[in-house]
Each structure stands twice: as structure tokens, then as C-alpha cells.
Design a protein around this nucleic acid. Sequence first.
DNA 1: CTAACCGTTGACGTCGGCGTCAACGCCAGC
DNA 2: GCTGGCGTTGACGCCGACGTCAACGGTTAG
Lengths: 148, 148
Amino acid sequence: MRIGELAARAGTTPRALRYYETRGLLPARRDAQGHRTYGEDDLRLLRQIHALQAFGFGLEETRPFVECLRAGHPTGDTCPASLDVYRSKLAELDACIAELNAVRETVRERLLLASASAAPEPRCELVPPQTDREETEPCSTPRPMSPR
Amino acid sequence: MRIGELAARAGTTPRALRYYETRGLLPARRDAQGHRTYGEDDLRLLRQIHALQAFGFGLEETRPFVECLRAGHPTGDTCPASLDVYRSKLAELDACIAELNAVRETVRERLLLASASAAPEPRCELVPPQTDREETEPCSTPRPMSPR
DNA sequence: CTAACCGTTGACGTCGGCGTCAACGCCAGC
DNA sequence: GCTGGCGTTGACGCCGACGTCAACGGTTAG
């Protein structure tokens, strides 16, 4: 299997696979023409990578999982190094969530205070809220649920 | 007041102020030597900018607040445009927090499942947890609480 | 023969908010 | 005159995960 086919089957692009290779994450054999050649196993590795990326894992963080799979384990998270990544990710998420909640509360307070003082006389105006709902792009840091 | 002094008083750098100017966020007058000149008002604008940045607001999002202040209002969030930013930020935060919570739960489940199957015999090993606490850098997207 | 299509490497662009460096100007003090 | 300190503009670097383009090569189908 060559790069185009693997990319299509994995739902990604040749460019991404080449990038992974430069990072040492997904090395490829070469055929007589110098073209990259992959096996079925590589498809599993790619699926692992994408599953973790969808959760906001960085490429480096997927490495233990990928190597774990390549070592022959049934799943990528069978190895201790992968569990460590899980744990540090959990801690990171907890810290992030706590911080965002704190910010959220502060912003909410400010909004209430400001909208109160901005309307000197609370006229109970019930303006129909929003006619159109814009898709506001959410959290991008661990950025899960990327388009495509 | 020139750029170095204002930067020092605002706790930022000349580079940042020049950048703001290129963005049209903080225009400056010039003296005979071509040096940027600022007034006391600009210090207030800068404080507003930094306060919002500490909450994870992007520079563009601070613009309504800054213009509100320049329009002579007592606070930056007196104007409707600023309130809109507050509201959209709240929505963004809510979406982000919800997403992160979902990811957190999934990761936690995975960790439990994997650590359970990784230890075929739950040997109740009570290894002393962590000897050193590494400062894991938290959420960077709305990235509040930046260093300095 | 030529076009279509797949592959290769290399380099630059993207996004935000500046940091850092280069090369220069102007003014004060010794 | 020389040094130090402040200012100016312009350009490149950073970080992550690629997208996009350029210029090239090899295989296959018409």
C-alpha cells in the first residue's frame, strides 16, 4: 500500500503521513521507485493517532500509544508510558477546566454588573434574543472535534 | 510620556505597544523627533487591554472596550459592543468547558479500563505516589494567567 | 507521443502576540 | 569625540500540524 491509498483509508492526507514520518512517528519502507510503502498495521497506528488527536492530544503525546501498538500489544494504552500520558492529560484537563470555570464566573459577574449599570432604568425590555445562531468556534487548546 | 516609560508603567514592553499601534488599537502622537508620545489616558487603555488578556481575550476582542474608554465612558464595558463580547466569550467558554469535560470523562474511563487490564492481578501495590510535582502548563487556548 | 495521475523533496504560509536582532538616528554627559 | 541610552523601522523566529506550491520523475492509458 502506498501513501495515497493509506491516507484515503485513514481519512487523512499524504502530507500528514509524510509529516509523521519526519517526526519519526510513522516510518515507512520504500519500494524500488523510492515510494513509501505501508502495511495494514500502519492503518491501525494511524487510527490510534487520530483517535487521540480528536481528544486534543498533541502528536508527541500519541507516540507512546503508537510504539505500544507496534510492540505488538492489542491496544495502544496497554503500556505504562501510555497510562502516564493519560494521567498527565487528566491533570492538564483538570487544571484547564478549573481555570476556565474561574474565568467564566468572573466574566459572568462583569457582564451582570455592566449590563445593570448600562441600563439606568431596568425597562424590562424583552427583545427577541437572537435570530441567527452563529457557530462560535470553541476551545482550541486541546482542540478536540476538529472539522473533518 | 514616551514609549519606554509607558511600557514600564503598564508592565509591558515597547514592542507590544508598537504592535498594538500597527493593529490600530493604540495609536500614538509623535513629537518633533518622530518619537511616539502618549498621555495618561493611554495608560488606562493599556490596563484595560491587559485585564482582558489575563482572562484569555484576544487583542481584537479588547478593541470594543478600548474604544469605549476612548469615547469617554467611565469603564470599558459600558458600551453595548463590549457587552456583546462578554456574551460571546461566555458562550465560547461554556462550549469549551463542556467539551473539555466530555474529553476528561472519556480519558478517565480509558485510564481506568486500561490500568485495570494492564494489571492482571490487582496486587494492591501502594507505591508512594509522586516524589516531585512537575508544573504542567495548563490550558493555553483562552490562556489566562500568563507569566508576568 | 502525450497526457493523466501518482509519487518524490524542499520551501514557504498559516495563526497570535509578541521576542529578538540589525542598522540606524538623536541627545546628554564626560 | 566617544559612549550610553533611548528612540525608530524592518525583518525574521517561535509554536503545532500540517496546506499549498514548485519542480521534478515514473507508470499507465489513450
